[in-house]
Computed example of a mutant assay.
Amino acid sequence: MNRLVHPIEQESYAILRGQLAARYPDAAGRPPLARAVLERVVHASADLEYAEDLVLPDESVLEQAVAALRADAPVVADVAMVAAGITRRQTLCRITDPRAAELAKETGLTRSAAALRLAAEEAGPGAVYVVGCAPTALFELIERAETYDPLLVLGLPVGFVGAAESKQALRESGLPAVSNVSGKGGSAVAAAALNALLYWEVVA
Score class of each variant (00 low, 15 high):
residue 9 E to I: 10
residue 190 A to F: 12
residue 113 A to P: 11
residue 28 A to Y: 03
residue 155 G to I: 05
residue 119 A to L: 12
residue 127 A to W: 06
residue 166 S to I: 07
residue 53 D to F: 14
residue 73 A to Y: 09
residue 85 G to A: 04
residue 51 A to Y: 09
residue 173 S to V: 11
residue 110 T to Q: 13
residue 49 E to V: 04
residue 116 L to F: 14
residue 6 H to Q: 01
residue 56 L to S: 08
residue 161 V to F: 14
residue 124 G to N: 13
residue 104 A to V: 08
residue 161 V to C: 05
residue 148 Y to N: 03
residue 18 G to V: 01
residue 53 D to M: 03
residue 167 K to L: 03
residue 43 H to P: 06
residue 42 V to H: 08
residue 17 R to V: 07
residue 83 A to N: 09
residue 79 V to S: 11
residue 110 T to A: 07
residue 39 E to Y: 10
residue 145 A to S: 15
residue 156 L to A: 03
residue 38 L to W: 12
residue 48 L to T: 09
residue 138 L to I: 12
residue 64 Q to Y: 00
residue 133 C to H: 15
residue 27 A to R: 07
residue 126 G to Q: 01
residue 115 A to I: 03
residue 23 R to T: 04
residue 202 V to E: 15
residue 41 V to M: 02
residue 186 G to H: 12
residue 93 C to W: 05
residue 82 V to G: 02
residue 138 L to D: 05
residue 169 A to L: 05
residue 120 A to D: 07
residue 30 R to P: 01
residue 124 G to M: 11
residue 49 E to Q: 15
residue 146 E to G: 00
residue 39 E to D: 15
residue 141 L to R: 01
residue 89 R to H: 01
residue 14 A to Q: 15
residue 90 Q to K: 14
residue 185 G to L: 02
residue 182 S to C: 09
residue 38 L to S: 06
residue 167 K to P: 04
residue 118 L to V: 00
residue 67 A to T: 14
residue 57 P to L: 02
residue 181 V to T: 14
residue 66 V to H: 11
residue 184 K to G: 02
residue 7 P to S: 03
residue 48 L to F: 08
residue 199 Y to V: 11
residue 176 P to Y: 04
residue 61 V to R: 09
residue 23 R to L: 09
residue 163 A to I: 08
residue 39 E to N: 11
residue 120 A to K: 04
residue 104 A to F: 03
residue 198 L to T: 00
residue 127 A to N: 11
residue 157 P to A: 11
residue 13 Y to Q: 13
residue 84 A to V: 07
residue 109 L to A: 05
residue 117 R to C: 00
residue 110 T to I: 13
residue 34 A to G: 10
residue 84 A to K: 15
residue 7 P to R: 01
residue 98 P to Y: 14
residue 60 S to I: 10
residue 81 M to V: 13
residue 195 N to E: 14
residue 87 T to F: 06
residue 141 L to P: 01
residue 70 R to C: 01
residue 194 L to Y: 14
residue 50 Y to C: 06
residue 123 A to E: 03
residue 187 S to N: 14
residue 61 V to G: 06
residue 26 D to Y: 10
residue 25 P to R: 12
residue 124 G to H: 12
residue 6 H to M: 04
residue 37 V to M: 03
residue 162 G to E: 02
residue 198 L to I: 05
residue 70 R to Y: 06
residue 16 L to R: 11
residue 95 I to E: 01
residue 80 A to W: 13
residue 3 R to P: 00
residue 113 A to S: 14
residue 157 P to G: 08
residue 41 V to G: 01
residue 203 V to A: 05
residue 101 A to W: 12
residue 194 L to E: 05
residue 127 A to H: 09
residue 97 D to L: 05
residue 183 G to P: 04
residue 14 A to M: 09
residue 125 P to S: 12
residue 108 G to D: 13
residue 71 A to H: 13
residue 110 T to H: 09
residue 80 A to L: 15
residue 12 S to I: 03
residue 53 D to V: 10
residue 125 P to L: 10
residue 50 Y to G: 02
residue 194 L to Q: 10
residue 90 Q to A: 14
residue 187 S to Q: 10
residue 66 V to C: 14
residue 25 P to A: 10
